[in-house]
Amino acid sequence: MKKLGLALLTLAAASAPANASTVFMGSYPDKMLIVDEATGTVKDRITLASGLPTSMRISNDNKKIYVTTITTSGIEVIDTATKKVVNSFSLNTPTTRYRFNGGVPDPSGRFFYTTLQKFEKLQDRWLVSPQMFAMIDLTKKAVTRTAEMPEEDTRNPNAGWRTGYMMSKDGKTLFLIRDKVLIVDTADLKVKDRLEVSKPEATGIEGVSFGGGVETLRSPTEYVSMFTAQDPYIRNKVYGVGRFNLATKAFDFRPIGPAPVGGGMGGLQVSKDMKEGWTVVTQEKVGNKRCEFWHLDLTTNLVKNKAEFPCRSRFQFGISGDTKLLYIYGASYDIEMYDAQTLQHVKTVDLGNDTTGAGMIITQ
């Protein structure tokens, strides 16, 4: 009888589902979707009081998600355990507005650092500020400190909108990663150094550009990204994986192969053991557009296999929490799921909401 009881308990434990992952996704007009990753079911839709989500950032301890919104220039903080909004506010007032996208919290979780512009309504016109570094106090729910960005750092037309934000472990240094790396002292919001990684030394290449950061490799000390580069002689373009170490400020670029002609590469996802990688390649953007998955062996820097998939006019690329499925989503009501090894279509999940460009965050 004891053996039978033990066998039943063992069977029950074996058949019990593992800790299911939860997917957080922004959607129109003011919702955060809470999706059960195992079933693809939308478990909840959280209304964000400050409006449309445009970016998400998870804290280093995975306990909080910081969402920036564009409707009223707000910040929403979501507790990943309870899946509830624990802080919500808008920066805009009837006479003052802000424009920003993304940012990073400090280790204490009280301050949020970003770059922004301020618009003040005067009697006869709107006064537009230059691009500024900013510290937002999440307790006071206000911008409490700003510093004007040097003119040489505002020449990038996408400054503030295509920027990777990282914070040092001690909260004393802010890193802005784009065409170069800006190192900003959080005490006075002044640029104390600039790293021209676009022209790394002793590599035989120039024109290195950052792609999207790798969320699965995100850590307090390293920024990992897909890069493209070209040599200075015959302008051949190659792509590879680059790592920027926040502590040592060292940049490491490892080429993988020729970059696609007439298109681009979007995102990089990696397996948990960091031995495999996946990216999306778009060939011929105009007229004859083709989209492919490229499956990479990161130990040998070789392409393992490729597969074409139906293009969308615009989309985002992600990977499941167990790295077994690849996701194509965005500007639509669904997620297309593909097997990460065979690159073949598995299923389509209907979300019932049009998702925004805020991306997705997966938690256990």
Rank of each mutant, 00 (worst) to 15 (best):
V23N: 03
F24L: 09
Y28P: 00
P29Y: 00
D30T: 11
D30P: 09
T39D: 15
G40P: 10
K43G: 04
D44S: 14
A49D: 14
A49F: 08
N60A: 02
Y66I: 04
T72K: 14
I75G: 06
I78G: 00
A81F: 00
T82K: 06
V86I: 15
S88F: 05
F89L: 07
F89H: 05
T93C: 13
P94C: 12
Y98W: 13
Y98N: 05
F100W: 05
N101F: 09
V104N: 01
D106H: 07
F111C: 05
T115A: 12
L122R: 07
R125T: 06
R125W: 00
Q131C: 01
M135S: 12
L138Q: 07
K141Y: 10
A142M: 13
A142V: 12
V143E: 11
V143G: 10
V143N: 03
T144Q: 03
A147R: 09
A147D: 02
E148V: 15
M149L: 10
P150E: 10
E151L: 13
D153E: 08
T154N: 03
T154S: 13
P157F: 12
N158L: 14
G160K: 09
Y165V: 06
Y165N: 03
M167V: 00
S168F: 08
L176S: 12
D179E: 13
K180T: 00
K180S: 02
L182R: 02
T186W: 07
D188W: 11
L195P: 00
K199Q: 08
E201Y: 01
E201C: 02
T203R: 11
G204Y: 01
E206D: 07
F210M: 13
F210A: 04
G213C: 07
E215C: 01
S219G: 15
P220Q: 14
Y223L: 02
T228R: 12
F244I: 08
N245H: 14
A250H: 10
D252S: 10
D252T: 15
P258H: 12
P258N: 10
V261W: 10
G262S: 06
M265F: 03
M265A: 08
G266R: 02
Q269R: 10
G277K: 03
V281C: 03
Q283Y: 08
K285G: 03
G287C: 06
N288D: 08
W294S: 07
H295G: 06
D297Y: 05
T300Q: 15
T300E: 14
T300S: 15
C311G: 11
C311E: 00
S313T: 08
Q316L: 07
G318H: 04
S320F: 00
G321N: 11
G321C: 02
Y329A: 07
A340V: 06
Q341N: 11
L343A: 06
T348R: 09
V349N: 01
G352P: 05
G352R: 11
G352Y: 14
N353I: 06
N353C: 09
D354K: 06
A358S: 15
G359D: 07
M360I: 15
Q364I: 08
